[in-house]
Design a protein around this nucleic acid. Structure first.
Length: 906
RNA sequence: GGGCGGUUAGCUCAGUUGGUUAGAGCGUUGCGUUGACAUCGCAAAGGUCGUAGGUUCGAGUCCUAUACCGCCCACCA
């Protein structure tokens, strides 16, 4: 046996490992045109994707699998098209997420980060990163990712750190970064500020507390006020009422007393107050509420912080100082009740702000933080999408993008963490000035002093991520990579990080490089379970991609994710789908066994000119259709639909029909066998090529076998490009093949053949004719069809399980054909099929079936006649009308046959 | 409050530019296994495309309204 014989079963496990190593070893993942390699041609346009960097200590989940599959598909497609394709891999330091992991580990040892100190903490985190940081990259390899691993980057590596400093200093020098006390979202557990985006609101049952704000100057008079957070009363600096509210107008300008504390605060008028809500009067806590902060600014109110960084009451809270916020809430309320200030409590649904990471309740607080003045950047980023320099797919997300950028707030970029890029700002202890610097300074540039202290904060992780498309290529250096590969091509990621990441990359790209960082944003949906629930460990519905790959193979997983998804829409993944796609890979494998086995049965060189059967012409016409359709779908980023069509072609046309026919044709030997094998090889090769971006492993493996089998047998068995490439991963993508006039005819004729076969199979199934039993048959049809059927006789016999010796094709026109004794009739379009089964069919049954057919055909004729006599005939395009006319003619022909048959039955 | 998406077969979903009998996988039913494949084959059942209008010769596809589900943003003392 030659070595290209395929084993009976496909061992995807071993294959995946072997093939990946082989690809990598041959350098196929590198762009063929590369400024780092000899023979570089800067004129050839590359295709570039920067990977969405996963968290360095993360574990692979289906979200990763999704983007890897999607991006690898795009990269492989471009590579096969001959475009230098670069996919830059890397990972993200993920400030909060990683730091939390380390802190958790420390907690197990019974200590805190403060106890071990910043330096030791960072040492441990780096050690953690070294230990676990490679895992995710290996898991991404298992998915088949064809990244250029030599270009792998990490957001905290030296080059990227330089980029971060450069970006910060530039913005700082332009005045686009400022520092100051503002009301920010404070995470008391993490003890850091977080940005607006990192706060998630959840609806939760709570209480609305009604109480009295007593007038300072008059006994017994009060303004009723409602709050959801009584502890903030301690920080109230005013009570606001609507200026036109008659209930309270007499109080405006007077003073009320803060419960328990007895502080005097003014009653102020402000239109922000909603007269309908609550009591119509609003307590103002500028230190702990964003709206109150704004009102406070308008009225020049003092700001009192009553909560500290751990959300405990500060000294300003008098008797409650040192208490936790919730403890203080209940204590204060009790004391107020005792003092007769409580009116009532009412159940109320709150929108509770929680930290995206820790999940704890975020506290709005006044704090000195660093901010990016975002408006000018946002304006530019809006422009880039508006004028089409960046295209977002699916398109409806552009609105979401606009909406966010048009209402954007300054971005709080400082975090009170240790794991991250430290803010490159120093404070001179001698002159008191602060300055930003690209390199760690020794002396103060303002006064020359040497007692410098660096700002202790680090930057928001997304600050460094925002630079990713160019920092990974070497920016701010003017490297050959930046010059050639930037701007990148497509940014493919989930829509959930459109704001966090995509918008910020566009802003930073424009700001720092003057160019958009990518011309296309492709947003995929989120992965959910089969009941469209989010996958979560608590629900227990998490599908682990690693387990899926172990059990069903990477290709099956990839194909499921790719074909099951539409851009921007969530995808429900179930194991059942993956199983179905594992079966698909298996089907491919077995088709390959058949084809490689068929090759040696044909002569190595044909003696005559090519001669193709109807089936050959048909499958070729269908294949060409597929290449055109797939090309168009790929161009429109409709990968899922493309995959589906290839799947359908392969399974429904190629395997179900053509392979069955091909076995028969190869069995005929001679040149017929050669030309059949030639079709098999070419079309299967084409299918493998088109499938390769979806299911790279099985296709590469099979293709290798196919190629070797073909080469071993004949130098005339070639793929479409005319020569066998060295590997499928770098093989040419099938060109869309143009349609020729004959194609339509082949399709119509073969469809008739299929209809005949189906009709016979149907009857056999109905009558329980044993599958093994070869039936004789008589086919009566118009002469021009008879010729075709005669040629296809052998195939017909195979497919419908007829006895080829006893199959007669009778050309017959005009007059009714006399029905043979003992036969029953099927009418398939212009063809009458007579099968000697009347013994199995009861009297009347045949008539009933024919009448049923007649009724169906009659209904169609009626429908089409109505249609064609309507304005449709004049207004619709001629081709469309013509098509319907032909259909009608076909039905009329069938109807005539049916009538004749029924008459013959008497 | 503003915006977006979904509603198609029992389930999960496709359905690009409107073209005239609506597709797949899974599930269900019946039949079938020595030669590519039971990880399979053959056949069958199953949908008035959420509802109501409109545009059009023609609407699952475009427009308007509406119901329900989901999401995002803003945020309500």
């Amino acid at each position: 046996m030659p070595d290209h014989t395929l084993p009976k079963t496909y061992d995807f496990h071993a294959t995946e490992r072997r093939i990946y190593a082989w690809w990598e070893q041959h350098g196929y993942f590198k762009p063929w045109n590369d400024p780092r390699r000899p023979g570089f041609d800067p004129a050839v346009e590359p295709f570039v994707i920067a990977i969405p960097p996963p968290n360095v200590t993360g574990e692979l989940h289906l979200g990763h699998a999704m983007f890897v599959a999607m991006e690898d598909l795009m990269i492989r497609y471009q590579r096969m098209k001959g475009v230098p394709a670069l996919w830059v891999p890397g990972s993200d330091h993920a400030g909060i997420a990683t730091q939390l992991q380390i802190e958790k580990a420390l907690a197990k040892e019974g200590c805190t980060r403060e106890q071990i100190g910043r330096e030791e903490f960072l040492k441990r985190t780096w050690a953690w990163k070294e230990k676990y940081g490679g895992i995710i990259a290996d898991q991404i390899r298992r998915l088949g990712a064809s990244c250029d691993w030599e270009r792998e980057r990490f957001t905290l590596d030296e080059g990227l750190s330089r980029a971060v400093r450069e970006a910060f200093v530039r913005l700082f020098e332009k005045g686009l970064i400022y520092r100051g006390p503002r009301l920010i979202n404070w995470s008391p557990g993490l003890k850091t500020a977080v940005s607006d985006l990192e706060v998630e609101y959840s609806e939760e049952p709570g209480t609305l507390y009604y109480f009295k704000y007593m007038l300072a100057a008059s006994e017994g008079e009060f303004i009723p006020v409602a709050t959801t957070r009584p502890e903030t009363i301690l920080g109230d600096t005013a009570v606001a009422v609507h200026p036109e509210d008659p209930r309270f107008s007499r109080y405006v300008g007077r003073e009320v007393l803060v419960p328990v504390l007895g502080r005097r605060i003014p009653v102020i008028p402000d239109e922000y107050v909603d007269r309908e809500f609550g009591t119509g009067a609003l307590k103002i806590t500028p230190g702990h509420d964003p709206n109150d902060y704004a009102i406070g600014q308008r009225h020049g109110l003092p700001v009192i912080s009553v909560l500290d960084e751990a959300a405990r009451v500060t000294g300003a809270g008098g008797p409650y100082a040192g208490q936790d916020r919730f403890e203080a809430r209940s204590n204060l309320w009790q004391d107020m009740r005792a003092a007769g200030l409580v009116i009532k409590e009412q159940p109320y649904t709150l929108s509770v702000p929680r930290s995206q990471r820790g999940g704890e309740i975020v506290e709005p607080m006044i704090s000195t933080q660093w901010f990016v003045r975002i408006a000018p950047l946002a304006e530019a980023a809006l422009g880039a999408v508006r004028d089409g320099r960046v295209r977002i797919i699916p398109e409806h997300f552009t609105k979401v993008y606009y909406n966010w950028l048009e209402n954007i707030q300054d971005w709080c970029i400082s975090r009170q963490l240790w794991w991250g890029h430290r803010i490159p700002v120093w404070y001179c202890q001698e002159c008191g000035k602060m300055f930003a610097a690209r390199e760690d300074p020794d002396i103060c540039p303002k006064c020359g002093g040497s007692r410098l202290e660096q700002d202790p904060d680090v930057l928001d992780t997304w600050f460094s991520s925002g630079l990713w498309p160019f920092s990974t290529l070497g920016w701010p250096e003017d490297t050959p990579d930046v010059r050639y590969f930037y701007p990148t091509s497509v940014m493919e990621t989930g829509y959930d990080i459109l704001f966090f990441w995509v918008a910020r990359m566009i802003m930073f790209g424009l700001e720092f490089t003057g160019q958009v960082p990518f011309h296309t944003v492709y947003l995929h949906g989120l992965i959910r379970d089969e009941q469209s629930r989010k996958m979560s460990k608590t629900t227990g519905n998490v599908i682990d991609p690693l387990e899926v790959m172990d059990e069903l193979g990477t290709d099956a997983l990839r194909f499921t994710l790719l074909v099951g998804s539409t851009p921007g829409h969530d995808t429900n993944v179930s194991l059942k789908k993956v199983v179905a796609n594992r079966n698909f890979a298996n089907k491919l494998w077995n088709a390959a066994r058949l084809i490689t086995g068929a090759i040696p049965q044909a002569p190595a060189a044909p003696q005559s000119e090519p001669e193709y059967t109807l089936a050959d012409a048909w499958i070729w016409a269908r294949f060409k259709q597929l290449t055109r359709s797939v090309e168009q779908l790929f161009q429109n980023y409709m990968y899922g639909e493309a995959g589906r069509q290839i799947y359908d072609f392969f399974w429904g046309d190629f395997a179900d029909w053509y392979l069955e026919i091909a076995k028969q044709q190869v069995g005929q030997g001679g040149d017929r066998a050669f030309y059949t094998v030639d079709r098999l090889v070419r079309i299967f090769d084409g299918v493998l090529r088109m499938l390769h971006p979806f299911t790279p492993f099985v296709t590469e493996e099979i293709w290798g076998h196919l190629k070797r089998a073909a080469q071993a047998h004949s130098d005339r068995l070639l793929p479409m490009p005319g020569a066998w490439e060295e590997a499928l991963i770098v093989a040419r993508w099938p060109q869309p093949e143009p349609e020729v006039a004959q194609d339509a005819d082949s399709l119509v004729r073969f469809t008739l053949l299929q209809d005949i076969v189906r009709a016979i199979r149907n009857l056999r199934a109905e009558k329980n004719v044993r599958p093994g039993q070869r039936l004789p048959a008589i086919l009566v049809c118009p002469p021009e069809i008879a010729e075709m059927l005669e040629e296809e006789k052998a195939n017909l016999a195979t497919l419908a399980r007829l006895d080829a010796e006893l199959l007669s094709i009778v050309p017959h026109g005009g007059t009714a054909f006399p029905k043979p004794e003992g036969h029953i009739t099927l009418v398939v379009g212009p063809v009458e099929v007579y099968l000697p089964l009347s013994g199995l069919v009861e009297a009347g049954e045949e008539r009933a079936r024919l009448e049923k057919d007649q009724a169906e055909v009659g209904a169609q004729i009626e429908r089409l006649e109505t249609l064609l006599s309507s304005p449709f005939a004049e207004k619709a395009p001629a081709a469309v009308v013509q098509k319907e006319r032909e259909k009608l003619a076909g039905y009329q022909e069938t109807a005539a046959k049916l009538r004749a048959q029924l008459q013959a039955l008497g």
